[in-house]
Simulated assay, not measured.
Amino acid sequence: MKTVFLQGSRVGSKTLVSLKKIEEKYLHKYPEHETTFIDLKDLNIEFSDGRNYLDYDGDTGFVTKKIMEADIIIIGSPTFQASIPATLKNIFDLLPQKALDKKTVAMVMTAGSDKHFLVAEIQLKPILGYMKANIVPNYVFVKDTDVINQDIVNDDVLYRMDNLIENTVVLAETYQAVWDKTEEDYGF
């Protein structure tokens, strides 16, 4: 399986810390998977202008192609103004409408307040659903107080990360088996 970890912001550190912890746990459990970590802080991404994703080059082309090749995408997103960051929305805008078809997508959300736990439900899940993703129903929500000195200090968050990883891979493998069986039935 090809897995992309997408850190969806150019500012802050708690989302990066959270997503890096998930990547660490993921690699420990599934070392045979091909993984790519994309941190939008390190890249120069163009604004979407309606071109086909294959027509972008540089960092923008790299990101869009990696997402299109992935079987699993784990998105890390902070909460800004009770919404997802514009940098993450721009990534979605760079892709075709059905870009996430047959891809399993999981999320880790960070916020300064537990009042923002619904941002994933209200902002991110509808976009992912529109783009035809197979969305892992549960996501990990990390508050500012769960991260101290660039380390996650809440054991419950770490436990939920383990569950997210397991649920994501099980869902992706199950969908893949069903799709493979369906292809076999066509007999091509």
Rank of each mutant, 00 (worst) to 15 (best):
D39C: 08
D39P: 04
D39H: 02
D39L: 00
L40C: 01
K41I: 03
K41N: 07
D42M: 00
D42V: 00
D42A: 01
L43R: 11
L43N: 02
N44V: 11
N44Y: 08
I45N: 11
E46P: 08
D49C: 05
D49K: 13
G50M: 07
G50Q: 09
R51V: 12
N52I: 06
Y53M: 08
L54E: 11
D55E: 15
D55M: 12
D55K: 15
Y56K: 09
Y56F: 13
D57I: 12
D57P: 00
G58I: 05
D59M: 12
D59C: 14
T60K: 15
G61S: 13
G61E: 11
G61H: 15
F62E: 02
F62V: 02
F62K: 15
F62P: 10
F62N: 15
V63G: 09
T64Q: 03
K65R: 15
I67K: 01
I67M: 12
M68C: 10
M68K: 11
M68N: 06
A70V: 01
A70Y: 02
A70H: 02
D71M: 00
D71Q: 08
I72Q: 04
I72C: 06
I73T: 10
I73F: 03
I73H: 04
I73S: 05
I75T: 07
G76A: 04
G76V: 06
S77I: 08
S77R: 08
S77V: 09
P78L: 01
T79Q: 06
Q81C: 04
Q81S: 13
A82H: 09
A82S: 08
S83G: 12
I84R: 02
P85I: 01
P85L: 02
P85S: 02
A86T: 10
T87K: 03
T87S: 14
T87D: 12
L88H: 08
L88V: 01
N90D: 10
I91F: 08
I91Y: 03
I91V: 15
F92S: 04
D93W: 11
L95D: 10
L95M: 14
L95W: 12
P96F: 00
A99G: 14
A99N: 05
L100R: 03
L100Y: 11
D101K: 15
D101W: 10
K103G: 07
T104P: 11
T104L: 12
T104C: 12
T104R: 09
V105M: 06
V105A: 07
V105G: 02
M107E: 10
M109G: 13
M109C: 13
M109E: 13
T110C: 07
T110D: 03
A111V: 06
G112N: 14
S113N: 13
S113A: 11
S113V: 04
S113C: 04
D114W: 09
K115D: 10
H116I: 12
V119M: 12
A120F: 13
E121P: 11
I122C: 03
I122L: 09
I122D: 02
I122R: 14
I122G: 00
Q123W: 03
L124M: 15
K125C: 09
P126E: 11
I127P: 03
I127E: 07
G129N: 13
G129Q: 07
Y130I: 01
Y130E: 08
N134T: 07
N134P: 00
N134Y: 04
I135T: 12
V136D: 02
V136R: 03
P137T: 04
